[in-house]
């Protein structure tokens, strides 16, 4: 597999009246063709800023890329001009936003909104674009596409609107699709339909997908690989099995432990104490240390590097250092690990 996207040491800050907010503080990850990478984290962890930076949609002038590279097929997107980005955006890289109501133009017919990109990027004439747009609506599972083409967004339900947004994103066969919480505003049954649709389309078009969410259930459903973000950094990255069945970072433990499973009957959920750090003055050392009951002394002094767990699995915690004390993960996480090793034994 060849690398489609490589993000190297990306740092993004926002200038505000209160000072500089360091939203993204050195993010590294890569993405192969046809692969799905899920980025998880709490609000304020920098996951959405990362994706808007990839799209070149960082608000100017307050948002600044401090350093780093975004290599898309070997070309650095950070260095591209606004004009050049306009050619890439919507064509090679497309995005599905969280709220389908506010990402569609309410005064424009749905068909025209899909045709817009086709006419602009693919130099299609209106008739061809119209034909292609109707096909796209059919592809995303909207019944009676001919009729629906001439309707306005308010005539669609939430799930149907999100399908339209996906159709727009897919119009130019992008190589990379970024979905920022695409199902958060939807009901569970609709969410399940949209996830199935996205997986099916990805298989057909072989585009890569970056899926941003805070819902670990959705991650388990769609992802090949997972990057866990905290305080503007990737703290753990691995395949979906690495992250769910063999998590190493205490923050990942907390995330997994704080979600009840359907067969869990514990008296109390494993909650991460406290709240995320203030990114105006990010703490020295490991940003998660103040909320981490397993924190070591070194955590308050020095930031942990990425430790290698396996070829696919890396985590940034001093607990993986050879001199660190052996620490047992919390019960609920341990049960997860045991359950999995049992399952593997049976196979």
């Amino acid at each position: 597999m060849s690398k489609l996207l490589e993000v190297k040491d990306l740092k993004v800050s926002f200038n505000t009246y209160n000072g500089e907010v360091q939203a993204v503080r050195g993010v590294n990850f890569d993405l192969n063709k046809g692969e799905t990478l899920a980025i998880v984290g709490e609000s304020g962890s920098g996951k959405s800023v990362t994706s808007t930076t990839l799209m070149g949609l960082l608000p100017k002038p307050q948002g600044i890329i401090k350093s780093g590279q975004i290599l898309f097929e070997g070309e650095d997107l950070v260095k591209k001009s606004v004009k050049e980005m306009q050619k890439i955006r919507g064509n090679d890289i497309a995005m599905v936003f969280q709220d389908p109501m506010s990402s569609l133009n309410p005064t424009m017919k749905v068909g025209n909104q899909i045709m817009e990109g086709l006419i602009k990027h693919q130099n299609m004439n209106r008739a061809d674009a119209k034909k292609k747009a109707t096909e796209l609506l059919e592809l995303v599972g909207i019944p009676q596409p001919d009729v629906r083409m001439n309707q306005y967004p308010h005539q669609f339900s939430g799930g149907m609107r999100q399908r339209v947004v996906i159709a727009i994103a897919l119009a130019c066969n992008p190589k990379l699709l970024i979905a920022d919480e695409p199902t958060t505003a939807l009901d569970v049954t609709i969410q399940a339909q949209i996830l199935e649709l996205m997986k099916k389309i990805q298989k057909e078009t072989n585009s890569a997908l970056i899926f941003i969410t805070h819902d670990l259930g959705v991650v388990a459903n769609v992802a090949d690989r997972v990057a866990v973000m905290y305080a503007g950094k990737v703290v753990e990255v691995g395949t979906v099995d690495d992250i769910f069945y063999n998590p190493k970072h205490p923050y990942t433990w907390g995330l997994l432990g704080s979600m009840p499973t359907l067969d869990s009957a514990e008296e109390e959920l494993y909650a991460i104490p406290g709240s995320p750090p203030d990114m105006l003055n990010p703490p020295k050392g490991d940003a998660f240390a103040p909320r981490n009951k397993f924190a070591l002394e070194i955590d308050t002094v020095m930031e942990p590097p990425m430790f290698k767990v396996s070829d696919t699995h890396y985590a940034a915690t001093w607990l993986l250092h050879e001199d660190a004390p052996k620490i047992e993960p919390p019960e609920s996480v341990k049960r997860r690990m045991q359950g999995f090793s049992k399952m593997e034994g049976e196979q």
């Binding site: 569970v188 049954t189 969410q191 388990a220 099995d241 769910f244």
Partner: peptide
């Protein structure tokens, strides 16, 4: 039944084998 089958669970193994029931 359909509602329960639609909940994604934080368990990749379960998710791979999940079949959704539509109502």
């Amino acid at each position: 039944k359909s509602l329960l089958s639609a909940i994604p669970l934080p368990d990749p193994e379960y998710e791979r084998n999940r079949t959704r029931i539509t109502y």
